[in-house]
Write a protein that binds this DNA or RNA. Structure first.
Lengths: 192, 192
DNA sequence: CAATAAGATGAACATTGGTTCCGGTTATTA
DNA sequence: TAATAACCGGAACCAATGTTCATCTTATTG
């Protein structure tokens, strides 16, 4: 019969995961493996026992964040289907994510690749489905302009100025949301 | 009397500069020194004879780009003072820069630090002065909304999605310009 | 408690990229 | 043309980082 995993091993695995979560949230996916290891109170070799490569570890963490994003999107969709205006829910979703990305670089990293991976990631697929539906509802009820697509949302999320002060980030969000919610025919600037 | 610089030295200096220009334009400021050197048909040591450090070389190149940007801004201001609508000139300036940043990563690098260096750079100061004046004129003639500032322009330029296809970049620019040119009171999305 | 397989350790290794430096070369000047 | 100061080449150096491995430790099982 297969021996059950050693107690210290599962404990260490947990420590490594939380350490990586914190470290990546604070300093991004470029932290050294040794920093993660030392924060976990463990040697580098131990990290490599649990994760074959740095990429594997980082991916695991980033996927967790992506899962949260997917949860968020589905919650917003649920609210919307529960009667809340689609536009408000979309805006709320975007605002929440932008705020999060300023505090958690893992979320940021997840956002930067949004829409790039062709649906390979489960969580991203969930989010895409939910947001697509949300926008659809917005179209039907005319609370979201016809031309808005999921790609727009991803584009918006992917270009947030994460390393700027909060006031600047807010200003930026304001510009973007205004652009997003304005129909083409009422745009003030000359179109070429 | 001081000897005049050797002919091959000035020739090599030129080669290094053009190689660096091309390499940085195509692949960004992260290219290896050896790549620049080999493109210039020269050994690394020679590059270091002309530039004390990689940063010095990159800065030199990026400053060149910044100079172009400054030129652009002053030309737009001149047009404006010559009777062209301020808004059109501002939009033209932004559009040109966004296009350029997609083709020349040196311009992109310059844009990313825009507004960060506190006027230390001469070229940036020139651009800032010109754009500030341009916006001022736009305010007076009411062709640019009151709340628009240079900081807005820098924010916009600094978050352009450089690694996206042209159509996406255009869409993004459209969103941003709409946001920029829309006065606060006529924004469609809920303000919190 | 003894045997053992799994786990932990951390020094050593490999790679990458900036930087240095010494031996050989060459344009300039007298 | 000879003397020389500047220049060039590129191998070697160094620091940072991801990764491996031989050795020691320990939780589990019988």
């Amino acid at each position: 019969m297969a021996r059950q995993p050693r107690a210290d091993a599962v404990r260490n695995r947990g420590r490594i995961l939380t350490a990586a979560r914190q470290e990546i949230a604070e300093r991004g996916p470029d932290v050294g493996m040794d920093e993660i290891a030392s924060r976990a109170g463990v040697a580098v070799g131990t990290v490599y026992r649990h994760f074959p490569t740095k990429e594997a570890l980082v991916t695991a963490i980033v996927n967790e964040s992506m899962e949260q994003v997917a949860d968020d999107s589905e919650r917003c969709l649920a609210f919307c289907e529960g009667g809340e205006p689609a536009r408000d829910q979309l805006v709320a979703f975007i605002k929440a994510l932008i705020t999060l990305s300023g505090e958690n670089q893992a979320v940021l990293a997840a956002m930067e690749t949004l829409g790039a991976s062709k649906g390979a990631d489960v969580a991203e697929a969930r989010a895409t489905t939910a947001i697509t539906r949300l926008i659809e509802i917005g179209h039907e009820s005319s609370s979201i302009p016809r031309h808005v697509t999921v790609a727009d949302v991803y584009l918006l999320l992917g270009t947030a100025p994460y390393d700027q002060p909060a006031s600047t980030r807010e200003r930026w969000l304001d510009l973007m949301l205004t652009g997003l919610m304005t129909a083409p025919e009422e745009r003030p600037h000359d179109r070429q």
